Amino acid sequence: MTALRLAPLLRPVIIALSLLLASAGLARAQSCSFTASDVVLGPVDVLGGSPTDAVGNIAISCSAFLGLLSSIDMRIHLGEGMGGLGGGLRRMTSAGTSTGLGFELYQDAARSVVFGGSYGSHGGQNLRLTGASILTLLTGSGMNVPVYVRVPAGQNTVVPGNYASAFSRNPVDVRVDYRTCNILLLCVDRTATFSFTVRGQVVPDCRVEADDLDFGTVGLLDQPVDVSSQIRVTCTAGSSYDLGLGYGLHGGGVNDRHMQDLAGNRIGYQLYRDSGRTLGWGQPADGLATTAAGSGAMQSFTVHGRVPAQPTPPPGAYADTVVVTVTY
C-alpha cells in the first residue's frame, strides 16, 4: 500500500526537477560575442571651422540556445581610450608630438549623447539595450550598434601627424555587462569585452587672404608713391612655408611689374618685403619669398608697394592682379 501511493508523487517531482535543470542549463548556455570596426577619420582639418565626423560599428551576436530565454538586458561601457583625456575630450596621440587631437564618441547621429560608462574616468552614459531594442538578438540574427565620432573644430595648435587612440583595456576602455533570464526567472550575469581604434590624420595645411594694394588717385608721377597692404596666412603648427608674390598680368620679373588701363597704357610699380623698400618680393624660385613657420594662428605680413617716379601716362584707371602663393 505504501509503495503504491508514493510512486505517483515521485514522478511530478522528478519531472519538475528535470525541467528546472534544463532551463538552468539553457540560461547558462546563452552568451553573446562582440566585435567592433576601427573608426578611420581620414584627413582632419584642424584649421577649418567645421568638425570632422565618422561612424564606427559594434556588432553583437548571441548564441541560439533560446528555448526558454525570456530577456536580455545589456549595457555597453566605453572609457577614455589609450590616448587619455585632455580639455574635457578623449584624445588621440601621435608619436613624437606633445599635443593630442581631441575627439568624442556619441550614441546618436546628432552627437548630443556622449557614449561613456561606469568604468574608467571619462564618465558619460553607457548604452543600454533591452526590450524592443534587442529583439533581433533573440532571433539569432545579431545586431549592429553605431558609434558616432567627432573631432571638434578649433584645434589649430595640433601639429601634423598620424593620430590614434586604442580602446582595448577591460574594464577601463571597454566592458559589456549583460544579463540573460528565462521564463522561470533564472538569470545569469555575464561580462564581455572587445577592442577597436579611432584613427585620424592631420596633414600640413595653409589658408591665405590678402587685401588690395591701392595707390589711390595721383596727378603727376614726378615722385614716388608709397602705400602698404596686408597678407594674412594661417598654417598648421610646426609647418614651414614660403610666401611668394607673382609678377602680375603685365610683368616679367620682380622689378618689372606694371598696372595697365583699358587702352593698354602702363604704370610701373614694385613690391617689397621691408619698409625701406630695398628687399624685392618675388617667388621662392627667385630666392625672394618670405619664409615663416606656422603656429596654427593667423600671421600677418605687410606688402610695401611703390610707384617710382616715371613719365606720367594718360589719365585713367590702372590695375594689375598679383597672385599670392603659399608653398608648404
Rank of each mutant, 00 (worst) to 15 (best):
M298D: 04
S37N: 14
G25D: 07
D242R: 06
I183V: 13
L220D: 09
V326M: 01
L221Q: 09
P51A: 12
A237N: 11
P152T: 01
G67R: 11
R111M: 03
S33R: 12
R232D: 00
R199H: 11
D173I: 04
F34Q: 04
N156C: 00
V233P: 04
D211I: 03
A293P: 00
R190P: 09
L20I: 08
S37K: 06
L41W: 02
C206D: 05
G87C: 03
Q30C: 10
E104D: 13
Y106Q: 11
P160K: 02
N170F: 14
T97H: 12
A263W: 11
T35P: 03
R266N: 04
G88V: 06
S63V: 12
V326N: 00
V323I: 09
L26I: 14
G88L: 12
T217F: 10
C32Q: 00
T321D: 03
H122S: 02
G87D: 01
D173T: 01
I231E: 05
L129Y: 02
A27T: 15
L68E: 10
R111I: 04
A36R: 02
P204L: 12
T197S: 05
S300F: 06
L262P: 01
D261Q: 05
R190V: 09
A285S: 14
Q260V: 13
D256G: 00
S71F: 07
T217A: 15
T157H: 06
S275T: 07
A289R: 03
R111Q: 08
A36E: 01
A164G: 08
V218Q: 13
P204W: 05
V307F: 02
Y328D: 00
A7S: 13
R128W: 09
Y119P: 00
I76E: 06
C206A: 11
F301W: 06
A263V: 08
S118K: 10
A164N: 10
T217N: 13
A7D: 06
R5M: 13
G316K: 08
A153G: 08
A292C: 01
A153N: 11
P314K: 10
S23Q: 12
L19G: 14
E80F: 00
L85K: 13
G246A: 00
S31Y: 14
G287L: 02
N162Q: 11
L221S: 09
Y163P: 08
V159L: 02
V218K: 07
T157M: 05
M1C: 08
R207L: 15
G253K: 04
P204D: 08
D189S: 15
R75F: 10
F196A: 06
L101P: 04
G49E: 10
Y106A: 13
A237I: 00
S295A: 00
